[in-house]
Amino acid sequence: MDTSSPSAFVNGALLRRYIGQKVRTVVQVIGSDMGSVVGKSTDDLQIFVKGSPPASTTTYLEVIGIAESENSIRAETWTNFGISFDALNYNELCKLANGEFKHLFI
């Protein structure tokens, strides 16, 4: 059991709260190259994800890593979330997980 390094659920707006800390988010991939991915957050903000993305990415991509600034994440873990993912639901989950039910998560 280890809860010392949780990763907070964030959307674009919540990212700034966790600069320097571990976060997780799902982005819609807009563009990618060797060392980064540009994505659209679930609340329609642009997020730059640095690191080494998987060779092929699907429409939705989950990244877990350190929030470097209010719009960039250095990702350690990348997971393709497929082509049909409900971004709205995820966005609501981010709000709940940082609000009333934060204590269940971080």
């Binding site: 979330f81 639901n89 709940l96 039910f101």
Partner: peptide
């Protein structure tokens, strides 16, 4: 289906 990830956490919140 990765909506299950979202669903799981929402279910945790719901049950709680």
């Amino acid at each position: 289906d990765f909506n299950e990830v979202t669903f799981h956490y929402i279910e945790c919140i719901h049950f709680y």
